[in-house]
Simulated assay, not measured.
Amino acid sequence: MSEQTIKQLDVSIMGREFRVACPVEEEATLLQAVQLLDQRMHDIRNAGKVIGIEKIAIMAALNLTHEYLHTRVGDGFDIGTIQRRIGDMNSTIDAVLAEQQQLF
């Protein structure tokens, strides 16, 4: 099993500084995520419809999550639908296993 090297990064989102930890090999992706989130939050603030940093953060998170759940890969694989189906299957499996444990 390989050891992952964790790096501490200082990032800025909406002018606020945060220190986050991430594996070294994921630094570039994390920085892209920070940039995307910061841009979305600035867009929401500049639109003037949402006031307050916490509300802006929640709206940005909801918008990004909504987009993520509607992302299609390749020839129409809908990630959101697949994840929901997997979640439903996990719930069904958990319920069946709980019934089985009651037998013993």
Rank of each mutant, 00 (worst) to 15 (best):
L62G: 15
I6K: 03
E99A: 09
L69C: 13
T5A: 07
A61K: 03
R84V: 08
G80K: 12
K7R: 03
I79D: 08
T71Q: 14
S12E: 02
F104C: 13
I58N: 08
I79A: 10
L37P: 11
V11K: 00
T71N: 10
V96F: 11
Q102L: 11
A28F: 09
R72Y: 07
M14T: 10
V24W: 08
K55F: 05
Q4Y: 05
I13R: 05
E3N: 11
T5G: 04
G87T: 12
Q101Y: 00
N46I: 01
F18E: 07
Q32N: 15
A21D: 15
I51G: 11
F77V: 08
Q101F: 00
T92V: 04
Q39R: 01
V73F: 12
H66A: 04
E25Q: 08
R45C: 08
Q32E: 15
L64A: 10
I6D: 01
S2T: 05
Q4H: 01
I82T: 05
M89Q: 13
R45Y: 12
I82W: 04
L9E: 12
E99D: 13
D38W: 00
S2M: 06
L64S: 04
I53Y: 01
V11S: 01
I86H: 09
M1G: 11
A98M: 06
R16N: 05
I79S: 06
A21P: 10
A47D: 00
F104R: 15
E17F: 12
A33F: 02
D78P: 08
F77H: 03
G80W: 04
A33D: 03
R45V: 10
I93W: 11
A21M: 09
I53N: 03
L103I: 01
A60W: 15
N90L: 11
Q8Y: 09
E17H: 14
D88P: 00
D43C: 12
G15E: 12
R72T: 07
N90C: 09
R19E: 07
R40K: 15
L69V: 13
R84E: 07
Q83W: 01
A33N: 02
E3R: 07
S12P: 01
A28T: 13
A95N: 14
F77S: 03
T29F: 13
L37R: 06
G52M: 13
G52N: 14
K49V: 02
R40H: 14
L31C: 14
D94H: 09
V11T: 00
Q8T: 13
E26G: 04
R84C: 05
D94Q: 12
I93G: 12
D88F: 00
T5I: 07
D10P: 07
S12Y: 06
A60F: 15
E25F: 11
D78F: 06
A98R: 10
E99T: 06
V24H: 04
S12G: 02
N46Q: 00
I58W: 05
H42A: 04
V24Y: 08
N63T: 08
V96G: 06
V50Y: 08
Q39I: 00
D38V: 00
V11P: 00
R16K: 03
M14V: 12
V24I: 05
R45M: 13
H70S: 09
G87N: 15
L69G: 12
L69H: 11
T29Y: 13
L37N: 06
A95G: 10
I13D: 05
M41R: 06
R16Q: 02
G74H: 07
M14Y: 14
H42C: 03
V50D: 06
G48Y: 02
S91A: 08
R19V: 09
D10I: 10
V96Q: 14
L30W: 08
G87R: 10
